[in-house]
Write a protein that binds this DNA or RNA. Structure first.
Lengths: 192, 192
DNA sequence: CGCCGAGTTGAACTGAATCAAGAAACGTGG
DNA sequence: CCACGTTTCTTGATTCAGTTCAACTCGGCG
């Protein structure tokens, strides 16, 4: 467990007492999620956050018209969960599914709460995760409010340069809020 | 100060020791912001969160094409700030401006951090604010990804029923990511 | 009274969606 | 290693929601 990517991540990204990190890691289990498998489905209660050791997850909803909208991708070193469902103990409205065969470190919310109380540094770290999340969501809103299909795509390849190679274009299109056909045309245009 | 709206808000929305609430309120000052005045401008560092006692604020950006995009409205009982700028001590990319004559309770981040350390309930409360914020942003993203102009507007009047009366339609349009002309047409269509 | 900003309406335009068909890439089993 | 079906990507033709630009209306206010 101490050789997990999550372990390295915590050691390099969070200024936390190694003992605390040890406690957290001791509570985490690594689990395998095969491509296509779900970590969370609509109407389930989300109890965990997932740190991606290796692989790729997507979090998405299916809207009233049956269309899939991807809220976020989670490649290596990303954490994903439904905070709303966890915090309010409500049925989720999201799916979290593996796009590739994936290994995740599963973190229970109780452990996060417990460590937040016992370690100020951990609290700060958890706070940073929340703030990062907010920042990321706001950027996305601004993009959706103002950017054309082409601008969105250019932004995407800046933020997720490797994903462009790893996932089908349909998924990128769904993330950007455009159709796969439009994305194909955007790419064609950019290639010239 | 103990008769402020912020005081009532804390007493009814947060399960916190009255002493702690007293400490927080003791550090807050109420300030007046005249219509059109700014609480934050691009390139300034945001140091405070603002609780709206009475009035209305908007948080927005000006994009590269000079267009205004409203990130959020903050009427009574809402808290607004640039968490990114506060947390990372970076120049802000947002404006926070009064849409009406407004009174705000100004909360310093240091006080929030201090109280989070000394009171677990306060930490939980602060956490709830962050989680609410995330929930709200995600809802907005889903809306922008999937909903038509009409659907967005219908959603808006559900979430902010009173604002429809209080603010010019241009502002609503800017929030929804459509032009004022389109909003006018949507409303016309709905009125029939 | 006359101005001014906000809202409305119309006409032309455009970026992206839709629908449909075909081409390429991919994995799986024989 | 090839043949097959499935999924992904591309391309074209058409449609449509929303933008743009411009003219006009309305209500408030000095």
């Amino acid at each position: 467990m101490d050789t997990s990517r999550f372990s390295s991540y915590l050691r390099s990204h969070a200024d936390i007492d190694p003992n605390i990190i040890g406690q957290l890691l001791g509570q985490c289990s690594i689990q395998k999620v095969a491509k296509g498998d779900f970590l969370l489905r609509t109407d389930e209660r989300c109890k965990h956050s997932f740190f991606v050791e290796i692989g790729l997850l997507k979090q998405y909803i299916i809207d009233s018209k049956g269309k899939e909208h991807i809220i976020q991708f989670a490649p290596e070193d990303w954490i994903v969960s439904d905070r709303e469902s966890i915090f309010y103990d409500q049925p989720s409205t999201y799916f979290i599914q593996a796009v590739e065969d994936t290994f995740v470190s599963t973190i229970s919310q109780e452990e996060i709460d417990r460590l937040s109380l016992s370690s100020p540094e951990f609290m700060k770290f958890n706070n940073r995760l929340l703030n990062n999340h907010i920042r990321q969501l706001q950027k996305r809103i601004i993009q959706l409010l103002g950017a054309s299909a082409e601008e969105r795509y250019l932004d995407f390849i800046k933020v997720y340069p490797d994903l462009t190679q790893r996932i089908p274009q349909t998924l990128i299109a769904s993330f950007l809020g455009i159709t796969p056909e439009s994305l194909s045309r955007v790419r064609k245009e950019l290639a010239r």
